[in-house]
Design a protein around this nucleic acid. Sequence first.
DNA 1: CCGAATTAATCCACGTTATGGACTTAATAT
DNA 2: ATATTAAGTCCATAACGTGGATTAATTCGG
Lengths: 388, 388
Amino acid sequence: MTQALRHDAMRARNLGVVLAEVRRSGPVSRAALAEITGLTKTTVSKMVGDLIAAGMVAESGAVRDGERGRPGTAVALSGGRVAALGLEINVDYLSACVVDLTLAVRTRYAQAVDNRMSSPVETLSHLQELAQKAVDEAQAQGLVIAGVTVAVPGPVDKGLVHAAPNLGWHDVRVPDLLSLTVEVDNEANLAALGELWFGSAPEDFLHVSGEIGIGAGLVVGGALFRGASGLAGELGHVVVAPDGPACRCGGRGCLEQYAGQDALLRAAGLGGTAGGVPELLERLRAGERRPLEACERAGRALGVALTSAVHLMDPGTIVLGGVFAPLFEWIREPAHRTMTARLSTMRHTVPALTVSRLGGDAATLGAAGRIIHRVIADPYSWRRFASR
Amino acid sequence: MTQALRHDAMRARNLGVVLAEVRRSGPVSRAALAEITGLTKTTVSKMVGDLIAAGMVAESGAVRDGERGRPGTAVALSGGRVAALGLEINVDYLSACVVDLTLAVRTRYAQAVDNRMSSPVETLSHLQELAQKAVDEAQAQGLVIAGVTVAVPGPVDKGLVHAAPNLGWHDVRVPDLLSLTVEVDNEANLAALGELWFGSAPEDFLHVSGEIGIGAGLVVGGALFRGASGLAGELGHVVVAPDGPACRCGGRGCLEQYAGQDALLRAAGLGGTAGGVPELLERLRAGERRPLEACERAGRALGVALTSAVHLMDPGTIVLGGVFAPLFEWIREPAHRTMTARLSTMRHTVPALTVSRLGGDAATLGAAGRIIHRVIADPYSWRRFASR
DNA sequence: CCGAATTAATCCACGTTATGGACTTAATAT
DNA sequence: ATATTAAGTCCATAACGTGGATTAATTCGG
């Protein structure tokens, strides 16, 4: 149900509108903010005052535009006070990063650990250490952490990780095992948001994160689409061929069986070897036939699955991340060719296929960015905002 | 950008919250409304007064609950004043219906016309006549039409129908050809909304409308998902078999080639005949082998496409409408079997497959319902609201 | 049958918030 | 120097919701 609004909610929302506009328009004068938001100069002035007191924005010198009339004093986001901590648990690494209000990365730690070998308790105690180091460093920089999000590779429902098959987790309550107040979300979702806020993605796109499994996060109008129960985006199990090879999901011919990391390495003749993706890349650069054919085949399958995804979800753009990022050069063409052949009659424009610039950091950044974006949209949500 | 809120917007929103709650909770006392919405009794009383003056709600006698204390006077939606007109253009018929604020259908006209034979101008002039009859009748009942929506079988962008292949339309500006202020939307989208408001569908579902083509509308949290450019839901062209029969969309093995009306009739051995779906039904009831096999095959293909849809969009339930409604008995089992086999390992629950109760009326009802729902959510949006 | 208790609805003084015009300040143009 | 222009602040006002007091209409208990 839509909530009733009282005066305080109106104020909170307008404050968020002003802060969001400060972020969007870089250094701006109060007068310009009033013009853009439709609020009066008086209101904007009061709000900017509060935001300065809260350390969220700062005056950044005069706007000398050469026009006549009194020059405005520009205000801009201040990264000096408010920050957020993003954490990520993945199959073979843990990472943490602190991001300030301007989305600048202040601290970043990553640690390679094989988390399949250890229990959730052990893994989370490792993560706790990493988080503590990051928090200490942030505090040394004078930052206050407004919130913490943990990214995990599997579907999440209110902090409960029901099953993360690649980690071997079942029914793990992440917040209960950390001595920090954290929120938990799915890695693929957060990677999509990371791409939105830190990458070069537009307002509408589908972010495909190819790892062992293949997940996808759809962003429409700057908001993540989660589906009815938060399980949307399982691109890896979209049907490519109904009678194809059996998949661990119980189906047949899922995309994962053609373009998942394991299937790809096997098709390239690197199934048993330990070289993994780096070796595959070497052999592709060397022009070996089998790896090239494997990528061609994976690209075509990806194109088929993406065709279905485009028909159903209509994303504006498609961003390939995870292992598809280094393989982009070899996968793009067959995938795009397949999509064009199947989509161009029905649509003016076939969604562009681009590559993520963020690589493996996307989810960690998205985890921290989520907190920052909430604080910007609703500054009062940060409990340490100036007592009123 | 999120809009700044002024006092009038706060009032508009709260008024909508109250009106929506009146709708949701049937006859309620003002005191109960205050409790539910979180607003004070004072505020609610003033708003209910305004809504009564506008003819949107009416007192419906005392609430005699047997408890002690003064009994409340219940208020409920009043269908006597505000209404909306829904229009639909389809391949072989036109229809119009007037729906009042309580979502009761006041007037309904349908006319069988083969619109493939006539130009957009002719078709729309027919529609205009039908609409006029409906408006006249509504006015005779004392109703005021708050808005009009036209449903068309094809993607729509701000009133412009770029291409409706089944009608033979290209770049038709529907509002320019009618002497009414109308909004235009896609038939599959409106059918999904019709199912939401007039059918028995829950808050989250995917509505599949099988006609010549196969469209789908996804509703999540009571809101329609449209994708980046409003083209989401093209279930008919989801890939079922990458090397299957060629489709008019340029692809191969699209769902439409297995479960579209034409493909289905052809597979049942009724390709050239004029009997259509009614004859197919007869033969199915008679237990003829070829039609039964055709449905089995179509159901399996539908199951494959829906599997992809569930993985990507995660709908809570799936509602089959259009020609799939009469065929439900024969299609449900193979479709459900296919989905269960492919989905049950990954999810606790496989979305239920249900049938629409609305049949062909869904889009017309959705078109009218859209206006009503907007008026309820924001009563001021109806320009004839009591001048303040 | 009557007063006490209880709940509904309204009334009124007040607090919060945004508004809009007047005022002050700081620059450019003449 | 003086006029003009625009930024930012000040102040009285209007819109709206709040919360306590008041009035109204019941049931309960004796």
